[in-house]
Structures are given as C-alpha cells and as structure tokens.
Design a protein around this nucleic acid. Structure first.
Lengths: 227, 227
DNA sequence: ACAAATTTAGACAGCCTTGTCCAATTCGTC
DNA sequence: GACGAATTGGACAAGGCTGTCTAAATTTGT
C-alpha cells in the first residue's frame, strides 16, 4: 500500500518470481510432452517449487496452460513489433539491409525460445482451444503482416521496389527467408546462426529478384527506365 | 483360388482389412490427442474393432504409433513422387503449367489427410523418435528436394529459367506456393480450393519474377542492360 | 458342415495423475 | 523478535489408462 508510483504492491517479491518460474517451466514441459502428457509434478520440480504452489498460483492444469499461451503470445508479439520497428525505411544498401532485418526477425522472434514454444503449442493444441488461438491469430500474424506490408509499400512508394500487392509480398518475404529452416522447425530444432544467415541471404536475393525496381508488367515497357 | 503369385496366404481377408482400419483410426486419434492423450479404447471404437484386436495386431501403443508413422510416410512419399512425375518438363505456358503443378502438389500431398496427419505427428512427436523421423527426413524432403531441383535445372538448361542454385530454387518454390497457407496449416485446418489456387498463383508469379529468363548476377552489369 | 483361427466382451491388476487437505516450516515485514 | 502470508511435503481419494487373461462367439477355408 505504500509505493504509490511503481507498484510492486501486495505480493512482496518472490511470489511473482515463482509465478514466472512456474509458467516458464510449464511452457517447457507442455512443449516437450504435449498437454495430455505434461505432468504437474514435473513442472513443479522444473520450476523449483512444490506442487501445491503450482495449484495455488494457477488453479488447475487447463488454467495453467492458458496462462502459458497468453504469456508466450504477449512476449512474441512484443518482440515482433519491436523488430518490425527496425525495418530499413531508408536503406543505404537495400539487399544488405533486408538481409539484416530478416536475420533479426528470425533470430529474435522465430527461432528463440518463445517463438519455438508458441509455434509448437499452436500446432499441437490449436484445435482444442479455438478462441484462445483465434485471439493469437488476430493479434499476431494478422497485425504482423499488415505492419510489414505497410513497410514494403513505403519502400515501393519511395521507388526501391515494385510491388503489386504489399500484403502478398510481406507473406512471401517471410516465407522466403524461412524457406531453408522449415525442416529444422518441424523437428523442433534450433537452426545455427549460419543457417539463419544463409536462409535470409538466399531468401532476400530471390525476393529482390522478383520485386526489385525494374518492373515490366508482362508486356515490354522499356520506355520508363530513365535512370 | 490360391493365387500363387500374390500371396494373401494365411490371413484370409478381413484380417488385413482390420489392420488397416486400426492404423487409420490410430492416425486420426494420435493427431487429435497427441501420443500421450491418445486412448486405445477410443482407437478401437473408431476402428470398429475390439480393444483386444488392437493389441493382437500391434502389440502395444508405441509399436502402433510407429506403424502409423511408417504407413503415413510411405503413402506420402509415394504421392509426392507421383506428383513430381507430372512436372511440366516441356511447358506450353510456363506460368500456367507451374501453377497447375503447384496446385497438384498442394492438393494431393500437402493438404490431404495423409499430409496433414504426418506433418502434425512430426511436429508433435519428432523429438521423441529421432531415428524414426530421421528416416522420414532422408526419404521424404531430402529426396523430394533433389528430384524437384533436377526438374528446375532441366527447365533452366532448356532456357526457360535462370537459376543459380536449383536446390535453393526448389525449396523456395515450395515455400512460395505455400506462403498463404501457413496459418491454416498451423491451426490444423484444411485450406479451401480457392485458397490453394490463390496461393499457388501468387507464389508462381513471384517465383517467375525472380527466376524467369532474364538474369543479372547481383552486381551491376549495365553494359548489357542499356534500356 | 467341420476345424482352426480370429475376434469379442468383460474382468482385472498395476500404475500413474489430478486435485484436495493439512500440519509444519519458511519468508518478508514491521 | 513476532506476526501473517506464503510455501512445503506428504498423505489421500477418485478416476483413467495400459496391457493381460479368459471363455464365448464368430468367421474362414475346405
């Protein structure tokens, strides 16, 4: 009740710390074992608390699962939008800048712990919690694609790219820079730095091959090229 | 009625039929519930046999799971190679032919029951059965990509495309024509015919934007490009 | 129609898991 | 040091699941 400003109010300190510890451990176990296979005792041990503490904090297994997904969704979305904020709006070297951006995106949002865990939970349990993952879908990919499409549209408007449909281009950009990581993702692995870099490099090269400045809408149109 | 050639020897008929029925039901239940959540009783009911029959045929839950994965892998690989055999080696209309090929690939190998089930099992249990899925990886994606890369190389050699690395191009082709289906796949859904067509169309258009005949190897080469 | 093999239903033991309860202990704060 | 809240460990009931066993019913080949 003191500390009017930045409230660590009621729960002293390690209360919240334990809650986080439990959610983290639960994320790990749910991902490894699936919802049905996850064992509350194991989560408790991995979190370094007693089983009763898990129940005190989260009520039951399903509520704990939902807390895990909400937590991951929130952090992943924050990471994605923070990364999109670093998009190269005024590129010095378009190819190099896009490769660097793609690498940040992959490393900080897709390949990191939260990204891998959230993806796996969605794939494994998405059908069991429709409204939970519908929420993720709207707040996550939906807004991600829009934001990224807007950045590409801006690059096009500034004359760096030639894009028909920025939304399609945004989705294809992400698909391309991940093209070489698909199998690793499927099997739950973490790509090496080098794999991430190579996939990003190859993906951006192809992306620019399709969308870089020169554009001829099917017919020949050499007249506009007054460089 | 001995059929000396193709021996349906001892086990008469519905024996094998029941085995298949069990494996099919098991695939469905394992996918819906995960390995730990799958219930042998439920599999038996869904297969229309008694629980004991399940055990008679497959021994235990783990052996049944392995049989399911092997079965799916085999059928999926067969489908993929059959589809690759329809690749347009001598295209009349390159874009239209590639779109049609991509649609076949998506519809018959990726979006069908076997494809969705196998993908989900790999994602959910891949880490638990390393050698089982390593086998899939080599026989499936590994050979798929090689075969597809060879087809693209042939198109390039015939002068229809300009490709540096056919393996990379093959992976990017698949990534592009699936770009718009990712979220649906993640949540376990089945895309509509129209979504498949649109994703294939957009993907092939971008692919050809990057790899269609004209090529400038990254560095500027304005000597040749006097527009 | 007969004999062998297969399938079925049901019961069963053994094990594991969830979620609750409680008494003893520790922790943070005053 | 003392107080109240949080945590712990352990016991516990209820229920579910796997895998086995058996005797009866059914199917199959001849």
């Amino acid at each position: 009740m003191k500390l009017g400003v930045s409230p660590d109010t009621f729960p002293p300190r390690s209360h919240e710390a334990k809650r986080i510890s439990v959610v983290d451990a639960a994320a790990s176990v749910f991902c490894r074992e699936g919802f049905a296979g996850a064992n509350i005792d194991l989560i408790a041990v991995e979190a370094g608390v007693s089983r009763q503490t898990v129940y005190n904090h989260h009520g039951d297994k399903e509520k704990l699962f939902i807390a895990v997904v909400r937590d991951l969704t929130e952090r992943c979305n924050a990471g994605i939008f923070a990364t999109i904020a670093t998009f190269p709006d005024r590129p010095a070297d378009l190819e190099a800048d896009l490769v660097a951006f793609a690498e940040r995106m992959n490393r900080n949002c897709i390949c990191n712990r939260d990204g891998r865990f959230l993806r796996k939970l969605i794939q494994a349990e998405g059908e069991r919690y429709p409204e939970l993952f519908a929420e993720w879908r709207e707040q996550g990919p939906g807004r991600t694609w829009s934001a990224l499409a807007a950045r590409f549209a801006r690059l096009a408007y500034a004359g760096h790219l030639s894009i028909d449909d920025p939304d399609v281009a945004a989705r294809q950009f992400l698909a391309l820079v991940n093209a070489e990581l698909q199998i690793t993702f499927m099997l739950g692995g973490t790509p090496t730095e080098e794999e991430v870099l190579r996939s990003a490099t190859n993906g951006v090269r192809t992306f620019l091959g399709a969308f870089a400045k020169r554009k001829m809408p099917a017919g020949k149109q050499p007249a506009l090229a007054h460089a």
